[in-house]
Structures are given as C-alpha cells and as structure tokens.
C-alpha cells in the first residue's frame, strides 16, 4: 500500500503487471538463479541429510525391535527352563518319596520277621520250660504219691509193708 505514495517510479499499475513483458527477462533470470541455488542446497546438503536421518531412524527402530524380539525369546526360553526344572524337581521328589517308602517297608519287613523269630524262639523256650516244669511236677507227684501211699498203707495195715508193690500200684494209678 505504501508503495504508491512514491508515485515516481510507478504510477498505479496499468492493467495487469503480470503482462508487462518488459519485466519477463528479469523475473526469469532471477527465478532460474533461485531455482539453481535451491536445487544445489537441497541436493548437496538438505536431502542427503534428511534421507540419512530417516534411514538411521528406521534402522535403529528395526534394531530395537530385533532386540525386543530377542529378549522375548530369551524370556520364553527362561520360562520353559523354569517349568522344566519345576517338573523335574517334582518328579525327583516323587522318586525320593517312593524310595523312602520302599526302604521303610523293607526295614519294617525285616523288623517284623526278626520280631516274629524272636517271639517264636521265646515261645519255644517257654514251652520247653513249661514241659520241664510239668515233668518235674509229674515226678514230684509220683514221689509224693508213693510217699503218701506208703504212709497210708503203713498207717492202715503196718504188716503189709511191701514198698515195691505199693510203688507199682501207685505208678499204675498215676499213669491212668
């Protein structure tokens, strides 16, 4: 707006300044200069720089993704190993429990067998002792019976003092 107050150089535009062909060489010249400058700046500096930045970025993103993939795989492997270890430990524990049970069973069997044997021995001994006691008692019975019989016979009829006959008779009676 301010320009027209100068008035000296240009009056108000007559028609379209765009069609003032006298300014064409000037505009075209400076346009070509500008375009060449822009092209050289872009082609030498700006575009390679932006392209390399973009390439770096996508490379680093790809690298990070690969790394993340690796980490994920490692984590999965670790989980698998953990699960496997857990299962192993469980089965081992089971084995140990089974072995212990078998051992205990074996010990128990042995102990029971030993105890049975001891019991059998003890009872055999006891039976023998009882038999002895019975024998000796029987013997004592005979002796006591003889003595009692002799005493009785002597008391009833002292004449008939045949000790041997009494003994035989007692022995027959005791046997019955």
């Amino acid at each position: 707006m301010a320009s027209e107050t100068h008035g000296a150089v240009t009056e108000h535009a007559q028609g379209m300044p765009q069609l003032d062909f006298s300014t064409f060489p000037n505009q075209i010249f400076w346009l070509v200069v500008s375009l060449v400058v822009v092209y050289l700046i872009l082609q030498r500096v700006a575009l390679p720089r932006i392209a390399s930045v973009l390439a770096d970025r996508s490379a680093s993103i790809q690298r990070d993704l690969d790394k993340a993939e690796d980490y994920k795989r490692n984590a999965e492997a670790a989980e698998e190993a953990y699960n496997k270890a857990l299962a192993d430990a469980r089965s081992e524990a089971q084995d140990i429990v089974n072995a212990a049970r078998v051992d205990i069973q074996k010990d128990l069997d042995i102990a029971i067998a030993k105890a049975d044997a001891e019991i059998a021995a003890k009872s055999a001994e006891s039976e023998k002792a009882i038999a002895d006691i019975r024998d000796s008692a029987m013997k004592s019975v005979k002796v006591v019976a003889n003595a009692v019989a002799v005493d009785i016979v002597e008391a009833i009829m002292p004449s008939a003092g045949d000790a041997k006959a009494i003994k035989d008779a007692v022995a027959v009676r005791v046997k019955e």
Binding site: E4, V9, H12, A13, G15, M16, P17
Partner: peptide, 13 residues
C-alpha cells in the same frame, strides 16, 4: 488498486 502489489520495481531506485 488491487494490482499495485504485483508491480515489479527495482530495489535500488
């Protein structure tokens, strides 16, 4: 003068 803004002028007179 809407077309005045398109006038090409020398920078240094």
């Amino acid at each position: 003068h809407p077309m005045d803004q398109f006038v090409i002028k020398p920078l240094f007179g």
